[in-house]
Amino acid sequence: MKAKEIQDLIDFIAKSGLNKVNIETEEFKISVKRDPDQKVKYVKDSGVSPVHTHAPAPVAAPQAAPAPAPAAAAAPAAPAQAASDESKYTTIKAPMIGTFYRSSSPESPSFVNVGDEVSKGQVICIIEAMKLFNEIESEVSGKIVKVLVDNASPVEYDQPLFLVDPS
């Protein structure tokens, strides 16, 4: 792997918000990890010492105002009911890290929408990883119940993308 490719990988991780990526091939093994102190490390299993670079500073999340007491009391019941409803669905997960796209181009319609019937092997989205666009196929047949990721959002390995009702 060339230095430019390694730098591109580090930049991609810094922009995507991922904390750790491991890549292993026959020739090399690379582990890129963002520590809590926001440094990005590059380690190659060849006796080469790590290269340290600084990642962009994180953006602080706005503090939410405390919710009124009546709303807080009703909130625990709703998630428990939603969790039991979602247990009957099959989750389609991301097979890789990258950027999630619902269509092949901005002008094209989405591969699938809520309510669409999908069959096993049907293309349901694209994940872009290092300038490669990978078509992701459905692992199950059924009806799309929910899209769990926004278009053009970064996704991590094994992150849920869709809920499918297999019945």
Rank of each mutant, 00 (worst) to 15 (best):
S119G: 14
E107P: 01
Q122N: 07
P166W: 00
D150H: 00
E117W: 00
N19E: 14
N19H: 14
P62Q: 05
Q159Y: 07
L9V: 00
G47R: 12
P106S: 05
Y157I: 13
V43P: 00
E5S: 11
Y89R: 02
F28N: 15
Q81D: 12
E156Q: 11
H52T: 11
K131T: 07
S105V: 06
G115V: 07
T53Y: 10
D45L: 09
A83P: 00
P166I: 15
T53S: 14
I23A: 08
K143I: 12
I97E: 15
S167W: 01
G17I: 09
N113M: 05
I97V: 14
P109K: 09
I23D: 10
Y42V: 13
I127D: 05
L132C: 04
E86A: 15
V147K: 05
S153Q: 08
P95K: 11
S49M: 08
K4S: 14
N134H: 08
V32G: 00
G115C: 07
K88I: 09
P79G: 06
T91L: 13
D116S: 04
A3V: 05
S119R: 13
K4N: 14
V40I: 09
D165V: 10
A152Q: 13
D158F: 14
Y157C: 03
M96D: 14
G121V: 07
E135L: 03
G142K: 06
G98Y: 06
L163G: 02
Y89P: 06
V164F: 02
A129M: 04
D150T: 10
D150K: 09
S138Y: 07
H54W: 01
A71K: 01
I10T: 04
S104H: 09
V155Y: 07
C125W: 03
Q38V: 04
K44S: 12
I13R: 01
T90C: 03
K4L: 12
E5C: 00
E107V: 07
S110H: 14
A71V: 15
P70Y: 04
Q63E: 12
S110V: 06
P68N: 07
I136N: 13
Y101R: 11
V59K: 09
V51M: 05
E128G: 07
A94G: 10
V118S: 02
V145G: 02
M130G: 12
S119I: 09
V40R: 05
A55L: 06
S46K: 04
A60N: 04
P76H: 02
E135C: 01
E156F: 00
N22F: 04
P106V: 10
D116E: 10
